[in-house]
């Protein structure tokens, strides 16, 4: 187990997903195409932000990295090894190298166990501490790393605030010294004043320990703040990737542009001036996605051949890729349209 845990240098690819498909079959009806051809890689020491609305497949992609869902197509690689077909037993060792922080901190901790016991679990499972004393001191160390007092190990989850519980969730994810931490909406259930604490904590830990994050969120501002690179998902696909500057300043895909224009900002002046690009209708069903470009049914700039050609991600500028036949051009058109309609 430990021999697989090879040293990886900064910038190396920690995890890679190639043409990942995750389809869920509910009884005998057509499968739900939760993830439908996603490729991405996460490099050592970076935060890759995965942003999208509900049903975009962003969480399922995260789960696939721990093999918490099985791929129905494509490959999942962690530390250069193809883990797609690993056995049940072997997958358990994968879950030391990739760990996870969940959205709802209250639900993700066993109410019957002390938080210390929850943090100890990975230590026991992966045999990382020889004795009871070693475990106890490691738990104390982990608690202090996440800004809690060591004596809180004896508390039960219901005796803690939401922010404290999420800190415990982070401590548990750190316990196995993972190569990658999947953060699945880690701040979405927290109060606004606590969200900033958790984001600062995550950034601080990353600097201190050189951690690698996959930060999954629907909160565009949080993703911009946290990420070194961003991937935008829509209906099981990545539609745009790039640095936060590229994505947020110059979105190339019409969906990204619409998403950004829909986010309300805490500035009444700007809100009065703003021209939203309002999308019409709803996200189509992932059971039967539209032909060609998946976004065309809601795209204000869709053309005829959008229905026939499935656009691939291509580079619009170095490091910035979008899956739209009319990238950039379509966005400009939409902005002009939004500016004229009051």
């Amino acid at each position: 187990m430990t021999t697989e845990h090879g040293a990886v240098k900064t910038g190396d690819v920690v995890a890679r997903v190639e043409d990942l498909h995750v389809h869920f079959s509910v009884s005998r009806s057509a499968p739900v195409r939760a993830v439908d051809g996603v490729s991405l890689e996460v490099r050592r020491g970076e935060t890759l932000g995965l942003v999208g609305e509900s049903g975009s497949g962003k969480s399922t992609t995260g789960l696939a990295l721990l093999r918490l869902v099985d791929a129905t197509g494509g490959r999942v690689e962690v530390g250069g090894q193809d883990v797609t077909d690993w056995s049940r037993r072997r997958v358990r060792s994968l879950r030391r190298r990739v760990s996870m922080v969940f959205q709802d901190p209250a639900a993700s901790l066993d109410p019957r166990l002390t938080v210390g016991a929850s943090i100890t679990e990975p230590l026991i499972v992966h045999d990382l501490a020889a004795s009871r004393d070693a475990r106890r001191s490691r738990v104390a160390e982990l608690l202090e790393m996440v800004g809690l007092r060591a004596d809180m190990a004896d508390r039960r989850p219901h005796e803690m605030s939401g922010g404290q519980k999420q800190r415990v969730g982070i401590a548990r994810a750190l316990a196995g010294e993972p190569d990658l931490i999947v953060l699945d909406e880690p701040i979405a259930s927290l109060d606004l004043s606590v969200q900033a604490q958790i984001m600062n904590l995550l950034r601080g830990l990353q600097e201190q320990l050189g951690l690698t994050y996959l930060f999954i969120s629907h909160d565009l501002a949080a993703v911009e703040h946290m990420s070194d690179r961003v991937a935008v998902m829509y209906l099981g696909r990545i539609v745009e990737t790039g640095t936060p500057e590229q994505i947020y300043r110059n979105p190339a895909h019409p969906y990204t542009a619409a998403l950004l224009s829909a986010v309300p900002t805490a500035d009444p002046e700007a809100e009065r001036r703003r021209r939203r690009i309002t999308l019409h209708g709803d996200v189509p069903s992932p059971v039967n996605p539209p032909s060609g470009c998946r976004f065309r049914t809601r795209c204000p700039a869709a053309r005829d051949n959008c229905a026939t050609t499935d656009p691939e991600l291509y580079e619009v500028e170095p490091g910035h890729r979008a899956a739209c036949l009319y990238a950039v051009e379509a966005v400009e058109e939409m902005r002009a349209g939004a500016a004229t309609t009051p």
Binding site: L192, Q195, A196, A221, A222, E224, P244, Y248, T265, A266
Partner: peptide, 14 residues
């Protein structure tokens, strides 16, 4: 406490 769009401060005020 909210991240400001376009401003990637190291640390958020908490």
């Amino acid at each position: 406490a909210r991240p400001q769009p376009g401003v990637r401060a190291d640390r958020l005020a908490t």
